[in-house]
């Protein structure tokens, strides 16, 4: 159901984007077909399902997991995911003792080839400020309650490296196929702002 009312004026940012787009096209600076392809790529082709496939493979294939932790860029490229904003990747692994959380305090850097474009909260000032200052409170607000003694490692990706969290595999999933496992993996668990439903590291 669209909430759009035909007689309501469009919001300012939408009007501004439309004005800029038509000017850029009119001046020949932008190919509208290229623009459509770019939008389609990040709306429909590239997203967190890519990262979920990487995670599921790491859970089921120990040699892939060690390649992924040693040279994430190459291991992710093996799955066909590479390029813009994923040129230099690092994968950090959650364990019984360590929970990783990714943030970009200076802007909104995010590993596009495996996670797509960042969610709004990831780009918002409160998350960027608080993830480094009080990560346990932020995690609790996301529903991640850490057991006492678990180390929280926050990765501030303000340089050229992009980070993906390898979340913990839930217990009782030994019989699931790689594809079924991939379906369990959530976007937030690969940022560290969540855990895969059913997995420990939380005391729920």
């Amino acid at each position: 159901m669209s909430k759009h009312q035909h007689n309501a004026p469009l919001p300012d940012p939408v009007l501004r984007v439309k004005a800029l787009e038509s000017l850029l096209i009119e001046k020949g600076l932008v190919d509208p077909a290229a623009l459509d392809l770019l939008i389609d790529t990040y709306e429909n082709q590239v997203g967190p399902r890519n990262g979920a496939r990487v995670v599921a493979r790491a859970w089921t294939d120990p040699s892939y997991r060690s390649r992924l932790l040693r040279d994430a860029t190459a291991a992710i490229a093996e799955m066909g995911f590479e390029g813009r904003q994923g040129e230099d990747m690092v994968v950090v692994e959650n364990t019984e003792r360590v929970h990783n959380l990714v943030v970009c305090t200076l802007c909104s850097c995010y590993p596009w080839p495996v996670l797509g474009l960042p969610p709004v909260w990831y780009k918002a000032a409160p998350y960027r400020a608080r993830a480094v200052r009080e990560p346990r409170k932020v995690l609790a607000e996301f529903g991640v309650d850490l057991v006492d003694g678990v180390e929280v490692r926050v990765w501030d990706s303000t340089a050229e490296l992009r980070y993906l969290v390898l979340p913990r595999r839930p217990d009782g999933t030994e019989r699931l196929s790689e594809q079924e496992l991939a379906e369990l993996v959530t976007r937030d668990s690969m940022i560290g702002a969540g855990v895969v439903p059913g997995s420990k590291s939380t005391d729920t």
Binding site: G28, V30, T41, G83, R84, E87, E160
Partner: peptide, 21 residues
Amino acid sequence: MKRLEADQVDAVLRRGATARR
């Protein structure tokens, strides 16, 4: 400025632009 054409989009995104030297 070089214009990005539709037939280049896939290759340009795939190649990326690493800042590693």
